[in-house]
């Protein structure tokens, strides 16, 4: 073959070789075809550990029990027993070290998630005691009168 064919061919071969060398350095050893085969299992195996090591933030009421057992046993006697502490008190993460104090969601909107009445005949939502947020003391925080740990209407604050 003539040299005018070989010369650009050398350049192409050189580029391919260079690309393969760079690939060898950039692509980690754990990248390849794994158990699920080429279609679903072509990936970097080491990335699984990245996801396994994500920090757990919600620790469940069991975690709160050791220090705040009193509050937990109180709420367990009410219909609010089904609600996890962290749903209102926020994720514990490493409390009490980090954060030292949890930001409690005391907002009206938090209560209205369940207690804003929706007229849905085929949903359990309409079976929860609810109010019309426009009419029922609009703008006032629910916890001014209601105690979320003791939600019974007989124990309304200020009406005892």
């Amino acid at each position: 073959m003539r040299s005018h064919i070989w010369r650009p061919l050398y350049v192409v071969i050189g580029i391919i070789f260079l690309a393969l060398v760079i690939r060898g350095f950039v692509v980690p050893k754990s990248f390849g075809i794994h158990e699920k085969g080429y279609i679903y299992g072509w990936y970097n195996k080491a990335d699984e550990n990245f996801w396994k090591e994500v920090k757990v933030k919600y620790r469940s009421s069991e975690y709160c029990k050791d220090c705040h057992g009193n509050n937990l046993s109180l709420i367990k006697q009410t219909p609010h027993a089904v609600i996890q502490c962290e749903n209102c008190h926020g994720p514990a993460i490493d409390h009490p070290e980090n954060p030292a104090k949890l930001a409690i969601d005391k907002s009206r909107e938090q209560c209205l998630r369940c207690h804003s009445y929706l007229p849905y005949p085929t949903s359990n939502r309409s079976k929860i005691k609810g109010i019309d947020p426009e009419r029922h003391n609009s703008g006032v925080e629910c916890i001014m009168c209601h105690n979320p740990h003791k939600p019974s209407l007989n124990s309304l604050r200020g009406l005892k």
Binding site: V56, K57, Y58, I83, E86, N87, G90, P91, R113, C114, L118, S123, N124, R125, I128
Partner: peptide, 15 residues
Amino acid sequence: KCVGCGMCVKACQLE
């Protein structure tokens, strides 16, 4: 059983 309280979405986004 779902009543649309959205607690799941809030927890997911924070977690």
